[in-house]
Nucleic acid binder design. Structure first.
Length: 313
DNA sequence: CGCTGTCAAGACGAA
DNA sequence: TTCGTCTTGACAGCG
């Protein structure tokens, strides 16, 4: 089993570089040269992204999550501009880097994306957000674009909320449906709920191990085979993080780093299935947490590292 | 210069 | 029905 590790959005090492420069709507309205301001921010963000990817290449990081704030105000309903054509060279250059150096990059829209919302406006926003993520992934010419979503709200109960999710999913354009992957969450939708939806819609499922620990009734082992099976011939993705603290209040929050022993425990469960996976390290210390985990794994296990972030079990 | 409150946006539970 | 909290990084504004 081959495991590749990844991190989210920003590098601790490149701490002066962010691909998420932004402007608030209020300040945008005050701005005299609106187009120039947006253009400046977009160029900043795309250049930062390129630098981060070059850093990933140097460090053999093959798995990375794009920030959802790459284009400022892009999904605001009262702001409209072409964020693809003027920057097509930059998108294509980044796309070439991804392909040439085998970096898997996906997106995970944030909490405002609620496909099963009962509020019409929220659903409209959600459609806009999904369209944006799709267009960005396409601009990078990513072969298998993946947008990771949560099921969303539980208004009127889980059963009705799941029905709404399925109904609304089927209203989406086919090309967006084909990108969506569902993740279990830490409060409402457990592994079995998400698996149920994924089976009906024939879409893959991302297992979030920390969310599973926060919110489960049954043993993970009962579901792992089915979860991995939802990916067909695509390499499955898994999210991994550790609780910020063991007290109830902070348990669900992410720790700066990864608890190596629980990571090893998880790998030992996973290795029975002997399938190659990509594991996204969701820790506040970002790539620093990834590299610390690798050092600890090298010390504590006999996993064979074929590069800085990839190992064989 | 550094700290703090605010931000376009949702959902939920407590008061 | 309204408010506080969750969560998060960027940034404006203030001292």
């Amino acid at each position: 089993m081959k495991v590749r590790l990844g991190y989210v959005a920003m590098s601790r090492t490149l701490d002066m570089i962010t691909p998420s420069h932004t402007i608030t709507y209020t300040n945008y309205l005050k701005e005299e040269q609106k187009e120039e301001k947006l253009d400046y921010l977009i160029n900043c963000n795309l250049d930062s992204l390129e630098q981060i990817l070059r850093y990933n290449i140097k460090n053999n990081i093959h798995f990375y999550r794009l920030t959802s704030k790459l284009i400022p105000l892009v999904t605001h309903k009262d702001v409209s501009f072409d964020y693809i054509t003027p920057y097509i060279n930059k998108y294509e250059l980044i796309g070439v880097l991804l392909k040439k150096y085998d970096i898997r990059m996906d997106t995970h829209p944030d909490q405002f994306t609620v496909l099963n919302s009962t509020n019409k406006e929220v659903l409209e926003n959600t459609n806009r957000i999904l369209e944006y993520h799709y267009r960005i992934l396409k601009a990078f010419k990513i072969d298998i674009p993946i947008i990771i979503l949560h099921v969303g709200s539980s208004v009127f109960g889980k059963k009705k909320a799941i029905e709404r999710f399925i109904y609304n999913f089927r209203q989406l354009p086919k090309y967006i449906q084909e990108c969506i992957v569902l993740e279990n969450d830490d409060k409402v939708y457990q592994v079995e709920d998400v698996l149920y939806i994924c089976r009906i819609l024939n879409i893959p499922m991302v297992l979030d191990y920390h969310h599973y620990v926060c919110n489960h009734n049954n043993d993970l082992d009962e579901y792992l085979k089915d979860i991995l099976g939802t990916w067909n011939n695509i390499r499955p993705k898994i999210h991994f993080s550790s609780p910020k603290s063991n007290n109830k209040k902070d348990f669900r929050s992410h720790h700066d780093y990864i608890d190596v022993d629980s990571f090893i425990t998880f790998i030992e469960i996973l290795k029975k299935y002997n399938i190659d996976v990509d594991i996204m390290i969701e820790a506040k210390a970002k790539d620093e947490a990834l590299f610390r985990l690798v050092r600890q794994l090298k010390y504590k296990t006999d996993y064979y590292f074929i590069d800085d972030t990839t190992f064989i079990v």
